[in-house]
Nucleic acid binder design. Structure first.
Lengths: 336, 336
DNA sequence: CTGTTAGCGCCTTCAA
DNA sequence: TTGAAGGCGCTAACAG
C-alpha cells in the first residue's frame, strides 16, 4: 500500500502538518526537522496523493493548453515544451481544443473549467487575442500566459522578434540580388501576420525598393492556401524572382505550385518560409526559413504561468531568439 | 460558488447517495427519482468535483498514453483520437513519454504512476511489445490497450490488416507493370516491420515474382534513414523501377535522394509509402500511400480501454479499414 | 429501492 | 516554530 503523510509523520516523529510544510516549501521549519522529514519521505518512498492535495488545497495542479485549429506541428512542439515544464513541477497538462464559432467557443471554455478546473492556462495564436477567451479568463480571474500574442502589453508569456527575423531573412534575399520579392501573408487574427508583413515592408524600405501591393497576397497558413496564392503570383508579369511565405506550410504549397507549372525552385523562383517545421527539411528543395524555438517557447510560457500561479505579481514577457536558415530553396535571381 | 452534491440532494429532496447513484449510472434507482435528480442537477448547473471523486473512489479518471520516440505526426493523431474518447467519458489524458534505455524507461514508468495514478494506459508501437513496460503493467495489474501490437493474442485495442493493405498496394504496383520492386523496412521492434514485409513478399509470390533479398534494406522510419536506404537502392544495377518504403517519412527521403541524383519521380522510379501523413500530400510528387485511420485508432483503443476499466472482462481487439491512395509518385515503369 | 455513516489523504485554521 | 482538529466533496459499506 502507498504510504500517506501520516506514515511519514510517524516515521519522522513529527506532526502531519510539519511534513506538509516541508513538502510544500513553506517557511517556519527548522532545518533539522526538514532533514528528518526528508529522510522519512525517502525511506517510505512517499509521494503526495494528487487528488487529496487538490481537494484540500482547492487547486487542481492542472495547466490547460487552449487552442483552436493551429498547425499540427506547432501544437505538437508547444505541447512538448509545456510537458517538460509541467513534469518538473508536478503539474498536469490538459489539452483543450475549443470551437471556432463564438457560442461554441464559450461553451467549450466553460466545459474545460468545469471538468478540470485548471489553475492556469497557456494560449497560442490566434487565441492569444481572442475576445471570448480573454473575457472568460479575466472574468474568472484565471492566470494565463501567451505565446506570441498580437498585443503583449500587460501580458506574461513568450515573444520572439518576428519583425526583426523577417527583416534579416529579407535582407538575405536582397543581398542575393532579389528586387521583386512577393509575400504571402498569414491570417490577420495571428500577430504573426502583422509582424511578418511589417518585417517585409521594413526590409524593402531599408533597401530602397518600392513596396508593390500587387506582390502581397493573403494566405491562411495552410498548404492549400499557399498553392492558391502562388498560382496568382507566378502568373504575374514580370514574375517575382522570390516569394516569402509567412510560414513553411504555405511555402511548401508555393513549391508545389511552381513544380506544377514546370518552374523549378530556386532556378526560376526562390522561395522561403517561416518556422522551420519538419517539412522544411523534408521537401525538395529544402526550404530557406527562420527557425522559431517553438518547444522552448512552450516551456518558457509555462514557467511564467507557474510563477504567476504561485504569486499573482510574478511572471513576465520573455523573449527568445530566432535562427536564420538559408537552404536550397533560395539563390540569386537568374538573368533572363 | 460551485454547487455540491449535497445542494443537489437538498434541491431534489433526496439523499446524497441517491444523487451519486444517478450520476454514476448505478442501478437501483426509480425512474422518477432519477428525473428529479437530473432536474436539480440541471437547475444548479452541478458538475462533480473531480478531485473529491477521485479521492473517495480510489481512481484518478486519468488515462495515460505511454510512448517512446514515435513519429510526431503519428503521436499527434493518436492523441487527438484519444482526446475525443476521453472527453466523452470525462476522463483526462496524460501524455507519458518514457526513455529508451531499460533503467530509464522503468523509472519513467514508475514516475508516471506515482504522479498521476492512471486508471489505464494506451500503448503505441514500439512500446506495445516492450518487455519492461508490459511487465510493469502486468505486475501492477493496470488495464491497458494496444494500438497495432506485434502480438495481439490476449490483448485489447486496435489493429489494422497491414499485411493485406500492403498486398493491395503492391498488387497495384505490379498491375502498373513493375517487376523489380524494392522495399525499405521499418525497425524490427514495430509490428509494422514484419506485417509490411510479409505483405511485400506475399504480393511478389502471388504475382510469380522471385523475392530478391538485395532489394530489401533496413530503415528506421525516419526521413534520414529513407535517404540512406534509397542511396543504396538507386545505385543498384539494374535499378529497381519502384520502391515501397514502410512509411511516408522514409518515402519522402527516397524522393529527396532521387532528386539529388537527378532522377525524377515517378518517371525514373516510382515511390510509395504508408500512413498518409500530411507530408504525403505536401511533397512533390504527392505520394502514393496507404491511409491508416490513426486518430480513429486512438479513439477506438481508448474506448476499449475504458470498457475494460469499468469491467475487467470487457474490451476486445477491434479492426479498422485502410484506404489505398494512388497519387502522383507512381506510374508504369518506363522502357529504357 | 433509499438513506446514514465513515472515511479517502491532505491542507487550513487556530491554538500552543 | 510546531501541533490538533476540522473539513474539502465524494463514494463505499452497510442499514433500513
Amino acid at each position: 500500500m502507498r504510504s500517506r503523510i501520516e506514515d511519514v509523520a510517524e516515521a519522522a516523529g513529527v506532526s502531519m502538518k510539519t511534513v506538509s510544510r516541508v513538502l510544500n516549501h513553506e517557511p517556519n521549519v527548522r532545518e533539522e526537522m526538514r532533514q528528518r522529514v526528508m529522510r522519512a519521505v525517502e525511506k517510505l518512498q512517499y509521494r503526495p496523493n494528487l487528488s487529496a492535495r487538490s481537494l484540500a488545497g482547492q487547486r487542481s495542479y492542472v495547466v490547460a493548453l487552449i487552442y483552436n485549429n493551429p498547425s499540427r506541428n506547432y501544437l505538437m512542439e508547444v505541447q512538448s515544451g509545456m510537458l517538460e515544464a509541467c513534469r518538473a513541477s508536478h503539474y498536469n497538462l490538459v489539452l483543450a481544443p475549443v470551437g471556432a464559432q463564438k457560442q461554441r467557443k464559450a461553451d467549450d471554455m466553460k466545459a474545460v473549467f468545469e471538468n478540470f478546473s485548471p489553475d492556469g492556462v497557456v494560449l497560442i495564436p490566434p487565441l492569444t487575442d481572442d475576445e471570448v477567451v480573454l473575457e472568460y479568463l479575466e472574468a474568472h480571474d484565471v492566470p494565463f500566459a501567451c505565446i506570441a500574442p498580437k498585443q503583449a502589453q500587460d501580458r506574461i508569456g513568450v515573444n520572439m522578434e518576428e519583425t526583426r527575423a523577417v527583416q534579416e531573412l529579407m535582407a538575405g534575399l536582397i543581398a542575393l540580388g532579389h528586387r521583386r520579392i512577393a509575400h504571402i501573408k498569414g491570417p490577420p487574427a495571428h500577430g504573426a501576420c502583422q509582424w511578418r508583413l511589417k518585417g517585409y515592408r521594413d526590409a524593402l524600405r531599408k533597401a530602397g525598393i518600392e513596396y508593390d501591393p500587387a506582390l502581397v497576397v493573403a494566405g491562411e497558413f495552410s498548404f492549400e492556401s499557399g498553392i492558391e496564392a502562388a498560382k496568382h503570383l507566378l502568373d504575374l508579369k514580370p514574375r517575382p524572382t522570390a516569394i516569402f511565405a509567412a510560414n513553411d506550410d504555405m511555402a511548401a504549397g508555393v513549391i508545389r505550385a511552381a513544380c506544377e507549372r514546370g518552374l523549378s525552385v530556386p532556378e526560376d523562383v526562390s522561395v522561403c518560409g517561416f518556422d522551420d517545421t519538419p517539412i522544411a527539411r523534408h521537401i525538395y528543395p529544402a526550404l530557406t526559413t527562420v527557425r522559431q524555438p517553438t518547444a522552448e517557447m512552450g516551456r518558457l510560457a509555462t514557467l511564467q504561468l507557474l510563477d504567476r500561479i504561485r504569486n499573482p505579481e510574478a511572471g513576465a514577457m520573455v523573449h527568445v531568439e530566432h535562427t536564420l536558415l538559408f537552404r536550397e530553396s533560395t539563390q540569386p535571381p537568374t538573368r533572363r
